[in-house]
């Protein structure tokens, strides 16, 4: 991967806050580092108070880092001009509620410098987020889900390359969550790079390509969503119908395979390195393979393990 593919680069980021007027400082980010690559959905996950929003605020220039460096598209996050290429949806966003949906998007369009064909872009986005019917309604009359969608629309008003979302599903009902999840997947399909702060792991599993887990201001895990839970020792389930009983016994005694299921269809659980061999033996004995799938430890398990190991090292 060449450096041009790195959209967000965070290197040794430190943030200290000074509670009250004293000289004592409280460190909330302990030199965190991670990269976000072009076109991926990056999940930045961690428990409440871990430092997710602080990191995002540093990236958005709302908080100044105490040490370290953060860049977006190669620009220092303290600059403002490059933000033509950046969209941001804060957690539980609040907008000027005396404006209508169309007026708020026109306002953000002016701020973002999206002057050319702005009105057409506003209409396109209202349609895209499913709010065309509410374009003339003042925002004080919007539901939380509608506000979240208008928030995504304002983040996209200038057609940015990278979009930052802070807890986009928080506080939404299941329908609202699905709507936002679908919008994020559509954005991903359009090639946008997406950075998402969240603690809802089921959404991470569905949406994210890679994750970084933060706990107590430290990155305790980063990589592809399944990294760390899939390896050569991890089990796979092979769904088989018509498995020869002799072969079943041989697999259990020779390879330590575990068989589940009743009747015609069984699932044979083996280690990944043995999958090819077992498949060949099943097919040779007239068995029919219905599916092969890794046994995924839930992301929640990975998350808890990472948090636990992070707490031990901190």
């Amino acid at each position: 991967m060449n450096t041009g593919d790195v959209i967000v680069q965070v290197d040794g980021l430190v943030k200290d806050f000074r509670p009250g007027f004293g000289l004592r400082r409280k460190r909330v980010l302990h030199g965190i580092s991670f990269d976000v690559h072009r076109g991926e959905v990056f999940g930045f996950i961690g428990p409440n108070g871990a430092g997710k929003t602080t990191t995002l605020k540093v990236l958005m220039g709302l908080i100044r880092a105490s040490a370290g460096r953060a860049t977006i598209l190669g620009h220092d996050v303290r600059e403002t001009a490059f933000r033509h290429h950046v969209g941001f949806l804060p957690e539980s966003p609040y907008f000027y509620d005396f404006l209508t949906g169309r007026e708020i998007l026109r306002f953000y369009g002016k701020l973002a410098g999206a002057h050319d064909r702005r009105d057409r872009r506003v209409d396109e986005l209202l349609d895209w987020v499913g709010l065309s019917h509410a374009a003339g309604l003042r925002l004080r009359n919007y539901s939380k889900g509608m506000l979240q969608r208008i928030g995504i629309a304002q983040a996209l008003i200038h057609d940015p390359e990278v979009v930052f979302l802070d807890e986009p599903m928080t506080g939404l009902d299941p329908v609202g969550r699905k709507e936002i999840r679908d919008l994020i997947l559509r954005l991903h399909g359009e090639g946008k790079t997406i950075f998402m702060n969240t603690h809802i792991l089921s959404d991470v599993e569905v949406i994210c390509d890679r994750v970084a887990i933060i706990a107590k201001g430290r990155i305790v895990h980063q990589g592809a969503t399944l990294d760390g839970v899939v390896n050569r020792e991890q089990p796979f389930d092979i769904a088989v119908s018509g498995l020869d009983p002799e072969l079943a016994e041989a697999l259990q005694t020779e390879l330590g395979a575990v068989l589940h299921g009743r009747g015609e269809r069984v699932e044979v659980r083996v280690r990944e390195k043995e999958v090819d061999e077992v498949l060949q033996r099943i097919l040779a004995r007239g068995g029919r393979v219905r599916g092969v799938a890794p046994v995924r430890a839930a992301l929640e398990e990975l998350f808890l393990q990472a948090i636990e190991s992070g707490e031990k090292t901190s």
Partner: peptide, 8 residues
């Protein structure tokens, strides 16, 4: 937040 995240 949303204002300063724009090129402002």
């Amino acid at each position: 937040y949303t204002i300063l995240s724009k090129p402002v």
